[in-house]
Amino acid sequence: MKRLDIGIGLLALIGLGIAAYLAYIHYAGVKPLCLASGGCETVQTSHWSKLAGVPVAVLGLVGYAAILALLLVPGETGLAATAFVALAGFGFSLYLTWAELFRIHAICQWCVASAVLMTLLAALSVFRLLTTEERGAYA
């Protein structure tokens, strides 16, 4: 496995941990650990925390797990699919960050951390798509 793959894998693992924690918070109904006063809980209990009835944390969980799984898919299909999931995750993170700032008026550090991870994952996976050679070596 190449260093770029390992880097993406590590970032996705961290993201998976954050998403799993937020999903647990959602279903257990407990308060999230939060540095700011109540910002995380405000975001977590807002109507923005769900998409068509599915908690956004669960969507994040699926996204990070998909990135990890797609790293194992060989060839351009795997490269493109990883970039697709990471870019979609990045776009949705942008939307949620906008909602936190301008609609919910509260910031959840866990969500910000996830957004940063998705941004890094999108950049790295695009770089990986453009530079990885067919047989797996980097240009």
Partner: peptide, 10 residues
């Protein structure tokens, strides 16, 4: 490929 992926993600 990137163009297609980007379009699909958007």
């Amino acid at each position: 490929l990137l163009g297609i992926v980007l379009g699909a993600a958007v």
